[in-house]
Nucleic acid binder design. Structure first.
Length: 430
RNA sequence: GGGGAAAUUCCAGAGCGGUCAAAUGGGGCAGACUGUAAAUCUGUUGGCUAAGCCUUCGGAGGUUCGAAUCCUUCUUUCCCCA
């Protein structure tokens, strides 16, 4: 199966320039995807791009990851994003290294294979570009009429738009086009991939390449990942789902995917895993037969946790999930030794309390608000208890006057605090 | 530069000088039902030493027994005309 065919059945192609498939069949081709180094970790919003590059490399082509050190300073108008902060070069370099480490889990950068991946940073060429050079060598080739015709620009210029568009933002597509041109000339990169919101910007690049060098370049975009309920993909109340285990624990990462809706799961498993078509078809069928078992979600979560973190982390997350959501009781919890207990609750917020204070017994209110700030106010906690939403060590606590003493401690050190069904906190007695 | 409108709680958006911790919707949290889902239903959504008290309606003053509501002024935003 060719690269394009592969992406097509997975539902990962939104737009593709004519002739792209022929080019890919003709020779080993180089393609790039841009990533902003705005943080030192990627989040799951980056996964689609990563998977595209992965498939691309598997198909025998050469991927380039372009770190947008320069463009990150400008701000892409395509997503009506706000003005961005300027990052200093040291931060960008640091982030770039971290990103590369993460990417190396998916893509081969280091082997001797001819299609080993490359990493580039557009800051390297943009920083020495003078304004004069830019308008002479780049700006000359693209008309303002052409740039204004882009959807992203039109939207901002229309009367409905509340915000004007700065010249800097307007220039963004040219800067991105310059990247493409640069990679085309220096790395023989003929294809740019990205999200569908990048389509206009990418085409400016192919246009620039055509006018300046007479060469031909191509574009593939993938659909923006959406959720069936319309909310934004990849964000939870607590923020982004990161790939860095320090930022999002493997347990939470696993839980995120496990909570995917049925409809989305069918879509996601094709996009985010490398499972082949027969396997996925079989899984989908099995899942539809009995959706309650959540075959797809479980497989999706397991595949991704293993790929992004590790098989061990995945197993740990599954075990933790089964304990936290299964029929675990206080007795089950009490049986766990400290090491297991801690591994199950890895990633759960921990609050330290003094052991002496527990010996005498202490009111729940005081314990969970003053001593350990699990809840913001006593009113909030009182309401939770009245609504039957607080559990200690897997047992409902319905008395807001209850005294907590050291008999509550599991493994002599911990108390498991549970808000509702899904939110856990751990008190650790020192 | 001239004229007009507005600023309310997480967001949107009501709010006759007392009965306003402030309608309603959204969002959040929790409960029921379930599959750790979706939909639906219910409760809750400023703080506290809690039938009471305290701090909130852009900022600062003022009028009044009493102000989110009236006045002055400042700040900010939007609209129309130049």
């Amino acid at each position: 199966m060719s690269f394009v065919e592969e992406l097509t059945w997975r539902g990962m192609i939104h737009d593709i320039t004519p002739g792209t498939e022929e080019q890919l069949k003709k020779e080993m081709t180089t393609a790039y995807v841009g990533i902003d180094p705005t943080a030192d970790s990627m989040h799951i919003g980056h996964l689609v791009s990563i998977m595209m590059l992965k498939h691309f490399q598997v198909a025998g082509h050469r991927p380039i990851v372009l770190v947008g050190g320069a463009t990150a300073m400008i701000g892409d108008p395509s997503g009506k994003s706000e003005e961005r902060n300027l990052l200093d070069e040291a931060t960008i370099r640091h982030n770039q290294e971290k990103l590369k480490q993460q990417l190396a889990q998916f893509i081969d950068f280091d082997s001797d294979a001819p299609n080993a991946a490359l990493m580039r940073n557009n800051y390297d060429w943009m920083k020495q570009f003078s304004f004069l050079e830019f308008i002479r060598d780049i700006g000359k080739h693209i008309t303002v009429n052409y740039m204004m015709a882009k959807d992203s620009v039109k939207k901002r210029l229309s009367s409905e738009s509340k915000q004007g568009m700065s010249f800097t933002e307007f220039t963004y597509q040219l800067v991105q086009g310059t990247d493409f041109l640069e990679l085309y000339q220096n790395d023989q990169c003929k294809l740019q991939m990205g999200g569908s919101d990048q389509w206009g910007n990418i085409l400016t690049g192919t246009e620039l390449i055509r006018r300046k060098t007479g060469g031909e370049a191509f574009a593939i975009t993938c659909p923006l990942i959406t959720k069936a309920d319309g909310s934004k993909f990849g964000k939870t109340e607590s923020g982004n789902i990161w790939l860095d285990p320090e930022r999002t624990s493997p347990y939470h990462f696993y839980q995120f995917w496990l909570n995917t809706s049925d409809e989305d799961a069918e879509k996601y498993i094709k996009i985010f895993t490398l499972l082949d078509r027969p396997t996925i078809d079989a899984l989908v069928e099995e899942h539809r037969a009995d959706p309650g078992l959540r075959i797809l979600q479980k497989r999706l979560a397991a595949e991704l946790t293993t790929m992004v973190h590790s098989a061990e982390a995945c197993e740990m997350s599954i075990e933790a999930s089964s304990i936290l959501f299964g029929k675990a009781t206080k007795e089950n919890l009490a049986k766990l030794d400290e090491a297991t207990f801690l591994s199950v609750f890895e990633g759960v917020p921990v609050f330290s309390i003094a052991k002496e204070q527990l010996n005498a017994g202490i009111p729940v209110m005081e314990l969970l608000v003053d001593l350990a700030p699990v809840f913001k106010s006593k009113g909030e906690l009182r309401r939770l208890i009245q609504g039957n939403g607080l559990s200690l060590n897997k047992e409902k606590e319905t008395n807001s006057e209850a005294l907590i003493d050291s008999s509550y401690l599991i493994a002599r050190r911990y108390i498991l605090v549970q808000q509702g069904k899904k939110q856990y906190y751990l008190l650790q007695a020192e």
